[in-house]
Write a protein that binds this DNA or RNA. Sequence first.
DNA 1: TCTGGGGTCCTAGGACCC
DNA 2: TCTGGGGTCCTAGGACCC
Length: 426
Amino acid sequence: MKRWDLQPTQIALVDVNNFYVSSERAFDPAIRRKPVAVYSNNDGCVIARCAEVKAMGVKMGVPVFEVRQLFKARGVVTRSSNYELYHDMSTRFTASLEQFCPEVEQYSIDESFLHFHGFGEQLSEHCQRLIAAVRQWTSMPCCAGIAPTRTLAKAANHFAKTLGVPGGVLQIGSEYHRQQLLQQMPAGEVWGVGRRLAKRLAMLDIHTAWDLATAHVPTIRKAFGVTLERTVRELQGVSCIELAPLDQAKHEIVSGRMFGRLLTQFEDVMAAVANHVQLAAEKLAAQDGVTGRLTTTVQARESGGGWRHLSAHAEFRPATKDTQALTAAARRALNEVFVAGREYRRASVCFSALERAQEQQDDLFGITNDGKDRLTDCLADINRRFGRGGAVLASARLSDEWQMKREHLSPAYTTDFRQLPVARTE
DNA sequence: TCTGGGGTCCTAGGACCC
DNA sequence: TCTGGGGTCCTAGGACCC
């Protein structure tokens, strides 16, 4: 029998249970024993639920209006997304993991892959101590799945949660164990298999993760491409999915959002666009980048009632980070697609063709934009020191009709002195 | 009446080159 | 009538992730 737990390299996937809910509960003991749900931006749909709310049958992503009555009747506490809080809790979580593993690969806001080499049979206990420590240091519950590949570690983590294993750690220990688990797992639950792929796989009579792991690889390759082939090999125990480091410069930067209500006026939509240009420009500055291409996209209502994406783009040579030039280009692009009298519900801005500022090629004609870049740097600096919105171009503030709804927002417990939680002793 | 936001990778197809 | 082969680069779109 192949011993999977004694392979020289083991990967643990550790993630926080119901991360947004757990973050909300961390600073508000009053809701620790109550059912809690967290809403998306704009209070549009449900994006996090505690176990009790999941048990009520509330699915990820359901529109809020569908569950409002249920939540009221069952006393569910609701919160708008509080990303300042979540990011801070995420930093604390990752820092805790680093106390237990030198090789932490952060994958998303609430989960990391931990790489262990030559740990032998003690790894499971080590991860149990890790989970207890995270609980003590951050108050957040988490689980770990351990296996030789990322995809199998994800699967193990899935079972650590759903089977409620003691200590919150599940390690795939043997060939038999791997088979047992994968046979219980629907193919659509496998990391990298979404709804559409699951449907197409079902037509080939592939229903479980085990079916997928034992499928004919060349057939999979031919029908679904190299991405799914890699998933199959990972399920077989061959590590072949690498992750790009999180701190690597992004290839594109997007900022976009639904409006708090439908808009019809050009300047209202433009105010949102200008704000997104500013946010994207700050992210661009953070990676010391410049952009060669800007795309403005809006969603407009069609005469039939459906929604349609309309977009136009502008190019920059040389590439730039000048917020004024970017905003002006975004305005021209919006002008190309905006039709008076239509309703709009969303705007977004995407920077692509990104380059590093230092490696930027000189323009053939020696055109530079030194002075304007200094203004951009200065704005970014002010916003870093005084918080978002400390200084913006006037065009981004002409209208705030587009601002999103956040009617159930919790305080910024950890990032704003005025909102620190207060502890009292009796 | 109300349905998020920000990313990634891969593929196919067109334009263009010698 | 018969109309190459191989390569690069770019873009749009599809699928996935949390």
